[in-house]
Amino acid sequence: MSGVSRSKSPMGALVVLAILAVGVIAPFFLSRYQIGLATQILIFGMLAMSIDILVGFTGRTSLGHGAIFGASTYVVLYCVTQSGLSPYLAVLLGIATATVLAAIFALLAVRTNGVYFLLLTLALGMIVWGICLRWTQVTGGENGLRGDIRPKALSDYKDFYWFILALAALVTFGIRRFVQSPFGLTLRGIRDSDSRMRSLGYNVPLHLFIGFTMSGFFAGVAGAFYAFFNNFVSPSTVALTQSVESLLMAIIGGVGTLYGSFIGASALIALQNLVSSHTERWQSVLGITFTLIMIFAPEGIVGKFRALREKYANKH
């Protein structure tokens, strides 16, 4: 779990620009369905990256981020379909809700670490899920909420993809700045040893609180636009599987690598879609694949790649 390698070299920047360029021109070569998948990958990549702030840079594994993400989705759908608000305002409210929810989670969870942090975030996520399932008048219960809520300006699937691509670039930039800021360094300090940070005079719970809330904010951004993508939300969006899957994306890509989140999201979503069309045992195939990744590349795909590159560089 090494920190982000700050590639100040022009090479690193070139690679990022090249990937972005590929992303921008991709819609001219892909089918409508593939563009839809790419959009979904970008949205879940943002969610996985928000989790990476905690897992990779703060040393806290959250199993409640699916709930924070989904709460934002619910609020956006509710505001547009039930209250008739403008979708843009709804997005702001959705993000605000997710941030407040994350702050509440944070207040309860910051004093714990390790498996207790994991369990507490899991339990809080389950509460949100329970509310979404039970509060039928507002959330539509099991059936969820739906409606055509995506604004006209984004109704074309290509436009929407480009918009999400730009948003993902912005979010990535924002998260990168956040974890590399002096404040982000204190989070890494907490990850490595919170007792040392405490004795150095840092207010560890406060830093964790801010870190968690920021992470929730970014999860909320992803969730709000997921509402535009799907035009639908049901309790499965806030369920534990959502949290686990997005955590898995961060881990497969490589925790502490940020960009790995997009790789992890691509791997998971692509596998799910390809394999499940060929066999109903797709979940077993997925399980075996992930087990193999954990055995041979526990640092994740991007992490493994970086490790190999360093090994190669040291040899020469």
């Binding site: 099991e142 059936n143 739906r146 035009n231 639908f232 499965s236």
Partner: peptide, 8 residues
């Protein structure tokens, strides 16, 4: 809920 999602 799966049917309603697809219907939408």
């Amino acid at each position: 809920n799966t049917g309603l999602a697809v219907a939408n």
